[in-house]
């Protein structure tokens, strides 16, 4: 009963690795923030990064779409491969990469534009629509996938900042999926939301798994247990343990993982 799904996920891990990180080191100036992290993230899976504050999980997440490039003092070493291609290769344009690896942030950050323009922003920049009708289609599809279409379809021209917190976050998810990414990174997407909005977003995350590899950083262990299939536990810059979520939460191998999920450290 317990072993069977464990076995099948192992199978997919072998066949369908989306992101492969090997010996990643990240430095903020003198501070060594990420140490020797190697991980293989699977496609069509929700992978949760958990760990106490300052353990490097957000930093590592931001390496996957090279958002750390925008911070001057940040330096990344090691290899991160998406579909076998090194994203830190000189030939890779970080701007193109970020269109392929979407990101949702901790605090909902809609642009001070209309709901429509918020979602159309990415497709417009990347020239994904040839005309207005196509753009309308893309926006509608993204808003439907963000599970917010029914709430906003009558007021697409209203400012995005006027929505409630949970709606704003789903708008930001819709905005991220509008550029048709292959990977979706979520940095504590529910930390600014109330339990009802959180439940909506979690449901959405589960649906998004059909099309993307989803990586989510979370402080809530219950959330990690609810939404993810794989969990990685970070501590002091090290990746301590990475395994099936069910295994991490029931039978962790490392004593530090056990201490954290039982609330003794963190």
């Amino acid at each position: 009963m317990y072993d069977a799904p464990h076995y099948t996920t192992q199978e997919t891990a072998v066949t369908d690795v989306k992101i492969k990180a090997k010996d990643v080191q990240v430095y903020y100036g003198e501070n060594h923030a990420i140490k020797d992290v190697s991980v293989e993230i699977e496609n069509n899976t929700v992978t949760a990064f958990i760990g106490p504050s300052g353990c490097g999980k957000s930093t590592f997440l931001r390496c996957i779409n090279r958002m750390n490039d925008t911070i001057d003092i940040c330096r990344v070493e090691g290899d991160i491969l998406i579909d076998g291609d090194d994203i830190y290769d000189k030939r890779v344009d970080p701007v193109q990469l970020r269109a392929k690896v979407g990101m949702v942030f901790q605090k909902p950050n809609p642009f001070p534009k209309s709901i429509y323009d918020n979602v159309a922003y990415g497709p417009k920049i990347h020239g994904m629509a040839r005309n207005k009708a196509e753009l309308d289609d893309i926006v509608e599809r993204a808003l439907r996938r963000g599970a917010i279409w029914d709430e906003v379809k009558d007021r697409l021209q209203a400012p995005g900042t006027g929505l409630s917190g949970g709606q704003q976050q789903r708008l930001c998810i819709a905005r991220a999926v509008a550029t048709e990414p292959e990977v979706l990174l979520m940095d504590e997407p529910c930390s600014a939301l109330d339990p009802i909005a959180t439940a909506q977003v979690e449901e959405l995350i589960d649906e998004l798994r059909q099309n993307y590899a989803v990586v989510i950083v979370t402080h809530s262990m219950q959330q990690a247990a609810r939404v993810s299939q794989k969990t990685a536990f970070f501590h002091l810059g090290y990746l301590v343990e990475y395994d099936d979520t069910s295994k991490i939460f029931t039978n962790p191998e490392d004593s530090r993982t056990e201490s954290y999920i039982t609330g003794r450290i963190g």
Binding site: M67, L97, R98, G102, P110, F111, G122
Partner: peptide
Amino acid sequence: SMRDGSYGLGA
């Protein structure tokens, strides 16, 4: 966060 949001979409 506005800039991050935009960079995150590949702008």
